[in-house]
Design a protein around this nucleic acid. Structure first.
Length: 599
RNA sequence: CGGGACGUAGCGCAGCUUGGCAGCGCGCAGCGUUCGGGACGCUGAGGUCGUGGGUUCAAAUCCCACCGUCCCGACCA
């Protein structure tokens, strides 16, 4: 069929090619029985975005955590990448492409070969050489940075967008947690801390613009740097029940942080005067609650010291918290600069402390490291296990009777607690991490010898920052945030197409000819337009259009054409209006242009 | 890695308890009637029943092992 040549990039090699739904290799309709499942999809089980993206023909799963981007999905992906590229270039970023396949040697040099554990894909080539598939590329960029010698070469912002690999223990939720995905990773190189701050702030602002343009309302929150190392990091979280992170935000001020980092204000507790340390029998009382119930006068949960035994990086650690507080494991790991931690087994605990969980405590413990939560500081008349089954101590004066190796903020914030900055209540919500920016410092520069000389000829390690955006995760987050019971509702800037021409009676020559004229005019006007010239019943085409979620739909049918009219429908809200054929291109251009840059 | 579920046609599933011709719906192909909100009739194509082993005259069905996928947990920049 004769199509508008300008519309199809393949036209020269495919003279008959037309851009239309029928040219998509995969375009599927689903049985009626299938649709209710889609509509009833529980928000907290399998991610809605996954169902929608599969059913609307954007992605296909190859294996757990591996996805094909079908033509529609690839269109969205490329639009997101274009937005990222524009904003990165705008802050002075220079795009390059580094290998994904790395010699293991490189990762051993930064110590991350072991630090990253099993999440790092490791393989061997035919000669037996150990190789790694990159999960992020601080190492390779640091190696490149060894080619810089002078402060005059700085600052630099380098970036790339390509595939990263992670051997996730459990890929899930469609595109939200995968083993292979596209990441925009960028790196700043600076001579000093103020330079790093500037590069970091530029990324912070650029990321806000990127996510706003993607139609997301991502929230920037304080975050733990985890195994990446570094001094400070900010995550960009899209609120969604499909997310896996919990975020704490103040209901009054602008305090916001990942629970892995967040803290809160606590009410002061008056313990009275310090008393005598005394053992007392507590037969059968093995939980905080049981002890509190049995001895409400001295062992309210807030008067107890909770003692947990962990192994962090293989070493035992006794962790102390207030009885009613929960441990935030990432905080514990950050506090002792460990990569990896797990609760100790009952036998291990007995061997270390001589008692079973339920009767543990830190009084008199000298044989292992003790880390205590700051909420215990200055407390007296506390109750805790005596490291002998069925015995506890009361009258514990934390300062007098316990010698923590270290104090740290370890407890997990919960709903209803007060903001650490303004004392108003905080709330918790789930979010999808779509971006993360880190102030790394000099660890990679030192590992790879990336030094530059300053004005005085003195040599300094380059200070690095690193910054990541997960492209496919951004697609999923956008769908989580923009859908209704009929399907996806793409924001214009990342929609696979901006306008869809739905031809009713595409087997009618006059109608189709008129539709192709409109198509051609829209393409010339710079619109990203798709023509649905399938010979299908109207209901089918409308339902598909809504499932796919192209922002504007122009319905062209014999009835309207006879009167010189077409129907313009916005996907958002599905409001329809009749427009004269002569005006439709202008009408759509106006609407699309107003939304194209997002925000 | 622990717990749970599942694996039968392109998709969604039934059949398995009680072994005996491999089925249904949708989709797909052809013809016809339809056509502004998921039409219908007739005809037809399409399956190593996840893989391997075992029991049996006979296995989709019973037993064992393995593989894969999903969910919960653990884990996770």
């Amino acid at each position: 069929m004769a199509g508008p040549a300008a519309a199809c990039g393949l036209t020269e090699s495919h003279p008959g090619c037309d851009v239309s739904l029928t040219t998509l290799p995969v375009f599927m309709r689903w049985s009626e029985a299938h649709i209710p499942t889609l509509r009833d999809a529980p928000a907290d089980a399998e991610a809605v975005s996954h169902k929608l993206l599969v059913r609307a023909g954007f992605i296909r799963q190859l294996a757990a955590g591996s996805y094909t981007m079908l033509p529609l999905g690839q269109k969205v992906r490329l639009k997101i990448m274009a937005i990222i590229r524009e904003e990165m270039d705008a802050i002075g970023g220079q795009e390059m492409v580094l290998p994904t396949l790395h010699p293991a040697e490189v990762w051993k040099q930064s110590a991350r070969y072991d630090l990253m554990g099993e999440e790092l894909f490791k393989l061997k080539d035919r000669k037996g050489t150990d190789l790694v598939l990159g999960m992020t590329e601080e190492e390779i960029f640091a190696m490149l940075a060894t080619e810089l010698f002078s402060y005059r070469d700085l600052p630099q912002i380098w970036y790339q967008m390509h595939t990263k690999f992670r051997d996730e223990p459990r890929p899930k939720s469609g595109l939200l947690r995968v083993r292979e995905f596209t990441m925009k990773d960028s790196y700043t190189l600076d001579i000093d801390a103020p330079g790093l701050d500037q590069g970091f702030d530029r990324h912070h602002e650029a990321y806000k613009r990127i996510f706003a343009r993607m139609g997301l309302d991502a929230v920037d929150v304080q975050a733990s740097s985890g195994a990446m190392g570094g001094s400070e990091s900010i995550e960009f979280m899209q609120r969604s029940d499909a997310g896996e992170d919990w975020i704490v935000t103040c209901t009054n001020c602008d305090y916001r942080a990942n629970v892995e980092k967040a803290t809160s204000a606590l009410e002061l507790i008056d313990d009275g005067d310090t008393g005598e340390l005394e053992r007392f029998p507590t037969p059968g009382l093995r939980t905080i609650q049981a002890l509190a119930d049995a001895h409400p006068d001295i062992a309210d949960a807030r008067q107890q010291i909770k003692s947990l035994v962990y192994f962090v990086d293989g070493e035992p650690l006794l962790v102390l918290l207030r009885g009613d507080h929960g441990l935030q494991e990432q905080k514990m790991l950050d506090a002792v600069a460990a990569a990896d931690g797990r609760p100790a087994e009952a036998e291990e605990i007995r061997e270390l402390l001589g008692a079973d969980p339920g009767s543990l405590g830190a009084v008199g413990v000298k044989n292992l490291r003790v880390i205590a939560d700051s909420a215990l500081e200055g407390r007296v008349n506390m109750t805790t296990g005596a490291n002998q089954d069925d015995w506890h101590y009361k009258g514990v004066d934390v300062a007098r009777d316990i010698e923590p190796t270290r104090w740290a903020d370890l407890r997990e914030v919960t709903t209803g607690e007060k903001c650490v900055e303004c004392n108003h209540p905080v709330e918790l919500w789930k979010g999808i991490e779509i971006g993360h920016i880190f102030k790394l410092g000099i660890m990679y520069s030192e590992a790879f010898g990336a030094y530059v000389q300053d004005e005085d000829g003195e040599s300094h390690p380059i200070i690095m920052g690193s910054y990541g955006i997960g492209v496919e995760r951004g697609i999923a987050a956008a769908v989580e945030a923009n859908h209704d019971e009929n399907g996806i509702v793409w924001p214009v800037p990342i929609a696979p197409y901006e306008v869809l021409l739905t031809v009713i009676r595409a087997d009618d020559e006059d109608t189709l000819a008129r539709a192709e004229e409109i198509y051609s005019g829209m393409a010339s006007a710079g619109l990203d337009v798709l023509l649905d010239d399938r010979v299908e019943r109207p209901g089918v085409k409308f339902a598909d259009a809504e499932l796919i979620g192209i922002p504007y739909r122009v319905t062209i049918g014999p009835r309207g054409v006879a009167e010189g009219m077409v129907e313009l429908t916005a996907r958002q809200g599905l409001e329809k209006e009749d427009v004269a054929i002569g005006d439709v291109i202008t009408a759509v251009v106006e609407r699309v242009m107003a939304e194209r840059n997002g925000g």
